[in-house]
Amino acid sequence: MRIIALAALAGALALSACGKKEEEPVVNNLVEPPVENVIVEEPEAPLPPPGNNASAPEPAPPPSISEQQQILDDAEATGMTARLDRSADDASNATD
Rank of each mutant, 00 (worst) to 15 (best):
L30T: 12
Q69N: 09
A60V: 07
P57S: 05
T78D: 13
T81L: 15
A12C: 08
S64D: 15
G51W: 02
A12D: 00
A12N: 00
N28T: 01
A75Y: 07
V35H: 03
D74E: 12
I65G: 00
T78N: 14
P62F: 00
R2Y: 05
Q68K: 08
E32L: 15
M1R: 08
Q69T: 14
I65Y: 06
D73N: 14
P46C: 04
N37T: 13
P61V: 01
S87D: 15
P61T: 00
E32D: 11
I39D: 05
A45P: 02
P61N: 01
N28Y: 02
P63K: 03
A5Y: 03
T81G: 04
I65E: 04
I39R: 02
P46T: 06
I71C: 02
E24W: 04
S66A: 08
N53W: 10
P49S: 07
A12Y: 05
D96C: 05
R86N: 11
Q69C: 04
Q68D: 11
P63D: 03
A17L: 13
A7H: 02
E67T: 11
A5Q: 08
N93Y: 15
D96I: 07
N52S: 08
A75L: 15
N37I: 07
G19D: 08
N93W: 14
L15W: 12
E32R: 09
R83K: 14
L30K: 10
R83V: 10
M1T: 06
A56G: 03
L47V: 09
N52K: 07
L6G: 04
E36P: 00
K21M: 08
P50V: 06
S64G: 09
V40Q: 03
S64V: 10
A77N: 07
L6H: 05
L72F: 06
E36D: 05
K20V: 13
G11T: 14
G51V: 10
E36A: 12
G79S: 03
D74N: 10
E22T: 15
D90Y: 12
Q68S: 12
G51R: 07
E67N: 11
I39W: 02
L47Y: 08
L30P: 00
N29H: 11
T78P: 00
A12L: 15
N29V: 06
A94L: 13
